[in-house]
């Protein structure tokens, strides 16, 4: 039963990783844009949720009403005003700029909110669980996160394949120059893509804030797993990112069941195996 429990908890954990990774996967997929500050954006969203909850006293889940559109707006204008200028043939400038962002965000958060670790109180939801069998409990909170990941990725998928903007975004990810010839405005399209990715970051941030303590410096640690989930799943494939997250989560919990020292390592090993066996990821939508 311990092993079944480990796998179930690993799948649920995978939902969290997929949620952290979805925004990154989207920006990676559409713009070939590697956002080093992704983890810090999530932490920033978490602080946004903290502010919303502190000022209005609503349940943390409701803070998404403010945080998600807020992040989307910031993402849009950030992309239009700053990040678009870094895009080009050279992949280095976006890396450097977002690396700088990472440092700036951490230090601004430190100045404003201090180094105290924070957490949002979700009340009974935090510890509630459903017992499936003796020794197998599914926590409501992890389940909710997993279902949200499913919802977010399903929604993004529908958006990409059912709407005309989605079609333009996909076309852009395939061939930027040709899309521009067809009369689409790349700068705007990138703005929309970042806005959507940032909205997902907002959701991830709220869950991060409810799940455990966060402080201004925890962002980079979140980035690594997100990256691995994207690579395992294959570039540009959102369901692949979910699969990548789950593989990572299950590898970690099974590793931990063997020996807790193997927990993080097992995830990295799973990632390495995928890289060796299928360098493009399991379900690539595009050539790397």
């Amino acid at each position: 039963m311990d092993w079944i429990n480990a796998i179930v908890q690993g799948i649920l954990l995978g939902g969290l990783y997929a949620l952290f990774a979805a925004g990154l996967s989207l920006m990676f997929g559409v713009m070939r844009f590697v956002n080093i500050a992704h983890g810090d954006f999530i932490v920033m969203a978490a602080y946004g949720a903290l502010l919303a909850v502190t000022f209005t006293g609503v349940h943390p889940l409701l803070s998404m009403i403010v945080v998600v559109p807020g992040l989307a707006l910031m993402g849009y204008f950030g992309q239009r005003i700053l990040l678009n200028r870094t895009l080009g043939d050279d992949i280095l400038p976006p890396l450097l700029v977002t690396f700088g962002f990472s440092i700036i965000i951490q230090n601004v958060l430190l100045e404003v909110f201090s180094a105290d670790s924070q957490k949002l109180q979700a009340g009974a939801l935090e510890t509630a669980s459903i017992q499936i069998a003796e020794g197998l409990n599914i926590g409501l909170m992890p389940l909710l996160i997993f279902l949200s990941a499913l919802g977010v990725i399903g929604g993004l998928q529908a958006f990409f394949y059912r709407t005309s903007l989605g079609r333009v975004l996909r076309a852009t990810s395939d061939d930027q120059d040709t899309v521009r010839l067809m009369g689409a405005d790349n700068a705007k399209i990138f703005g929309y893509a970042t806005a959507i990715a940032s909205a997902v970051v907002g959701i991830a941030g709220v869950y991060l804030a409810m799940r455990t303590n966060f402080d201004p410096s925890v962002g980079p640690a979140r980035l690594l797993f997100a990256f691995e989930a994207v690579i395992i799943g294959g570039l540009g494939n959102l369901w692949g990112t979910l699969a990548g997250g789950i593989i990572l989560g299950v590898a970690q919990t099974i590793g931990a069941q063997i020996d807790p020292g193997l927990q993080i390592l097992a995830g990295h090993i799973a990632f390495l195996i995928v890289l060796v066996v299928k360098p493009q990821g399991l379900f690539p939508k595009m050539k790397g």
Binding site: G10, Q252, G261, Q263
Partner: peptide, 21 residues
């Protein structure tokens, strides 16, 4: 003592089952 784990782990199911057992 189930063993040394890495800081910033997102899951402690293994330890919890060991302590329960």
């Amino acid at each position: 003592d189930p063993g040394r784990y890495q800081n910033l782990s997102d899951d402690f199911s293994a330890q919890i089952s060991a302590f329960k057992n």
